[in-house]
């Protein structure tokens, strides 16, 4: 693989995406939500004004877990199921299929990173002015985890685009994936524990965590925010099961990286045998 080719494809993809009105709309809406939640998040408790970094991260966690996978899947699908004519023209160039996949993925990821960072940085600036820098490192870790979540779901969109090849079918598949990981998976996992008892139910629940990138990012974020106690005794059991806070985060990061690598390897295998 030639890095220069991957870089050129990524640059083109980034240019196309940052000029796309949907990317700009996402950046605007996400910024508004993040800034809004960080400001109004404490209203329920009778406070108005900016929260600090740790509280803001905890408040916007669910927003990130809902929106980021959805936007990543949609942006990835739009990019990887492009018009037939332009796809054929690109793949007919002296480039390998792996270079095209990787270049496009990096380009879309960078555009998503930029539009997501706009919201986080805007909120960050306002928090620093209102509440100081306390907890900024945890906020940074949370931002990193959000971007990693977007990369996981972009990689999954590459798989669905490669499998389905048609835009309409790919959109159907990614919507199913979003519902599955964001809404249904937890119900399935909890349902599974009903069939098991005692320690094996706990083990099943902990292991099932690795089957859902959304849950992994949720748990890793809460651990990094020092907030795993929100789970109560089960949170403590989870951290103990995973081998402590640091090793838990490392394990979860490794599992997320494996999700990305697995998706890309599968897409590469599929596309090598496909007609374009």
């Amino acid at each position: 693989m030639e890095l220069r080719i991957i870089f050129e494809i990524a640059r083109e993809e980034l240019t196309i995406n940052i000029r796309n009105k949907w990317t700009l709309i996402y950046a605007g809406v996400f910024s508004l939500l993040v800034v809004g939640i960080s400001y109004f998040g404490m209203m329920a408790e009778g406070f108005a004004g900016m929260q600090n970094f740790t509280r803001t991260s905890a408040s916007i966690l669910n927003l990130v877990l809902y929106i980021v996978p959805l936007v990543a899947l949609v942006m990835g699908t739009l990019s990887f199921t492009g018009d037939k004519g332009s796809t054929e023209l690109l793949f007919s160039q002296p480039v390998s299929r792996a270079e095209v996949l990787l270049g496009k993925l990096i380009g879309v990821f960078l555009s998503m990173t930029l539009s997501t960072l706009v919201g986080f940085i805007l909120a960050g600036i306002i928090i620093v002015t209102g509440s100081g820098t306390d907890g900024i490192d945890r906020y940074a870790a949370f931002v990193g985890l959000s971007l990693l979540l977007s990369l996981v779901f972009l990689s999954l969109s590459v798989v669905t685009a490669t499998v389905s090849r048609r835009k309409s079918k790919a959109f159907g598949l990614v919507l199913f994936l979003w519902f599955f990981f964001v809404l249904f998976y937890d119900l399935l996992a909890i349902g599974g524990t009903l069939l098991l008892q005692g320690k094996s139910a706990n083990t099943f629940l902990f292991v099932s965590l690795l089957g859902n990138p959304v849950d992994m990012v949720r748990v890793a974020s809460l651990i990094s925010l020092d907030n795993v106690t929100i789970f109560g005794a089960s949170g403590a059991a989870l951290v103990r099961f995973l081998g402590g806070s640091l090793s838990s985060i490392l394990l979860l990061l490794t599992a997320l990286a494996l999700w990305i690598a697995g998706s890309l390897l599968l897409s590469h295998r599929l596309i090598q045998r496909q007609d374009i």
Partner: peptide, 17 residues
């Protein structure tokens, strides 16, 4: 492919380039 330049039947370019 270095020797070949191909023009598909219905060529489309990204509209925002």
């Amino acid at each position: 492919k270095r020797f070949v330049s191909y023009l598909p039947q219905r060529v489309v370019f990204p509209e925002n380039l």
